[in-house]
Amino acid sequence: MNVTFLNEYINLVVLGICLCLGYVIKNSLDFISNKYIPLIMLVIGTLINILVNISNFSATVVLGGMISGLASTGMYEALRSFIKGKEKEE
C-alpha cells in the first residue's frame, strides 16, 4: 500500500509544534497516558492548521492538520530510536 500521496498534506510548522508539544506531554505530564498522545496531537494539529489557514478553510486543511499531528508522533518515535541507537554505538 503506497501512502506517499499523504506527504503533500503535511504542514511542517504544524508538525514541528506538535512534535514539541508531544515531547513535553510524554516527558513532563505523567498523568496523561501514552496511549492518548496520538489523539491529543491529532486534535492539536487540526486546530493549529485551521487557525493558520482560517481564510481558506476546507476539508484539505482539516486533513492536513490531522496528518501533521499524527506524523509528529511517528517522527518522535523515529528520532527516539535513532538517538538510542547512536547511544549504544558510543
Rank of each mutant, 00 (worst) to 15 (best):
M1P: 10
N2L: 10
N2C: 06
V3D: 08
T4S: 13
T4F: 10
N7V: 12
E8I: 03
Y9L: 11
Y9K: 03
N11L: 00
V14Q: 05
C18T: 13
C18M: 05
G22V: 07
G22L: 02
G22R: 00
V24W: 09
V24N: 04
V24R: 01
V24E: 06
I25M: 06
K26L: 10
K26I: 11
K26W: 01
S28Y: 14
L29M: 10
I32S: 07
I32F: 11
N34P: 03
K35Q: 12
K35T: 14
Y36S: 08
P38G: 12
P38V: 11
P38E: 07
L39P: 05
I40H: 01
M41K: 00
M41R: 00
G45T: 06
G45M: 03
T46I: 05
I48L: 09
I48G: 07
N49V: 07
I50Q: 00
I50L: 11
I50A: 06
I50Y: 04
N53F: 09
S55L: 04
N56K: 06
F57D: 01
A59G: 13
V61C: 06
V61K: 04
V62I: 15
V62H: 04
L63T: 14
G64T: 05
G65E: 01
L70E: 10
A71V: 12
A71L: 09
S72M: 03
T73N: 15
T73P: 00
T73F: 08
G74D: 02
G74H: 03
M75H: 06
E77Q: 08
R80C: 11
S81N: 10
S81Y: 13
I83D: 09
I83P: 04
I83W: 12
I83G: 02
K84E: 15
K84A: 14
K86P: 00
E87G: 02
E87F: 11
E87K: 04
K88Q: 00
E90I: 12
